[in-house]
């Protein structure tokens, strides 16, 4: 099967490596903005002969799609290409996390259902792995009331730029069945992450709440936060003062799901840690393989909506090195 990958940044390169090691994909077309740097990255990935490098242009993208089994959009601002994929009945997987891009992808739902293809909106670390963890946590509940997502760390330069912008853009939170606008960088909360400990997290503009509301009807609250330093928050309204690092260090994700089982209220906290670009690339590749095999429900949505068996997906991610963890215990103890 042929797969098309748009973007070869930190996430795209990891996704390419995963796709090339899959038994399902035997040919990969990589669409990039600039050929020269991408050629170097592809050379390091290997698998000569099975990879074709194409410079990004609308005509070439349409030609690359012919006969493709799946498209992975792993570059910022490429969600619009999903429409072209859906027109040709090709499943599309996007790692976009900005609300406007995800909303655009969700708008393709009816057409995607009609053509029997899946459009995965948000197949990175958050949203993406966050959706799978929330779906797995919700499986033991009769009713899901609240989902709270928090992240720590960034992947490649594009991810760092998005994190910078997400700290200044207006945030939409789901409260009691309605969207409420909040100021980004507000609402400090101390969050405990697996392996990395506690970090102060603040509201950010990210699509997790939008996808959670789609996935869990009757949800009362959905929020998303990201860890940020004082400098991050203070300088978020300025252009980035220095170019972002080629890749961030180890990051983490925490998803808290509150709900009811019978008469009892309960909370399940799941998380994961790892290099965000590696985690996002692995999740995107798995989503692409599932979409290409028609294992996802047709339509547009997050992984919580489209994956029928989230625990199986988590088990497969675990085999690929992305280990989910569960928090057992209670939060901060009362002061003695």
């Amino acid at each position: 099967m042929r797969a098309v990958l748009v973007g070869l940044g930190a996430v795209g390169a990891r996704c390419a490596r995963q796709l090339l090691s899959s038994v399902l994909i035997d040919e990969l077309v990589v669409v990039v903005r600039h050929r020269a740097p991408a050629a170097g990255v592809l050379a390091s990935i290997g698998s000569p002969g099975s990879v074709e490098l194409v410079e990004l242009s609308p005509g070439d993208f349409g030609r690359s799609l012919r006969g493709a089994g799946v498209v992975v959009l792993a570059a910022p601002g490429t969600a619009t290409f999903a429409r072209e994929a859906v027109d040709q009945g090709v499943p599309a997987v996007s790692v976009a996390d900005a609300t406007d891009e995800v909303r655009l992808l969700l708008g393709l739902g009816t057409e995607a259902r009609d053509r029997g293809a899946a459009v995965v909106a948000g197949a990175g670390m958050a949203p993406g792995l966050s959706c799978l963890l929330a779906a797995a946590a919700a499986e033991g509940m009769d009713e899901v009331n609240e989902v709270h997502v928090a992240t720590l760390g960034t992947g490649g330069p594009a991810c760092a730029r998005r994190h910078h912008a997400a700290l200044r853009e207006m945030v939409e939170e789901w409260r009691e069945g309605a969207w409420e606008r909040k100021v980004a960088s507000s609402g400090r909360e101390l969050v405990w992450f697996p392996d990395l400990g506690g970090a102060d997290c603040y509201r950010v503009e990210r699509a997790d709440p939008l996808l959670m509301v789609e996935a869990f009807p009757g949800l009362r609250r959905a929020t998303t936060r990201a860890a940020a330093s004082r400098r991050d928050r203070l300088t978020s309204w300025l252009p980035m003062l220095r170019p972002p690092h080629p890749e961030g260090t180890v990051g983490a994700l925490r998803v808290e799901v509150r709900g009811r089982r019978g008469d009892k209220a309960g909370t399940v906290v799941l998380g994961a840690s790892g290099r965000p670009a590696l985690v996002a690339g692995t999740v995107a590749a798995l989503a692409a393989e599932m979409a290409a095999s028609r294992l996802l429900k047709p339509g547009a949505g997050g992984l919580a909506s489209l994956v029928a068996t989230p625990r199986e997906a988590l088990a497969e991610l675990s085999r690929r090195g992305v280990k989910a963890e569960i928090f057992e215990g209670v939060g901060p103890a009362p002061t003695e």
Binding site: T267, L270, R311, E325
Partner: peptide, 23 residues
């Protein structure tokens, strides 16, 4: 520093992937 807390993180095991995860 950070407030004290009890408990910790445990990696999900094969059993967790069969049965719904519960606290």
């Amino acid at each position: 520093g950070t407030p004290r807390h009890r408990g910790g993180w445990r990696e999900l095991s094969a059993e967790d992937f069969v049965e719904p995860v519960e606290e």
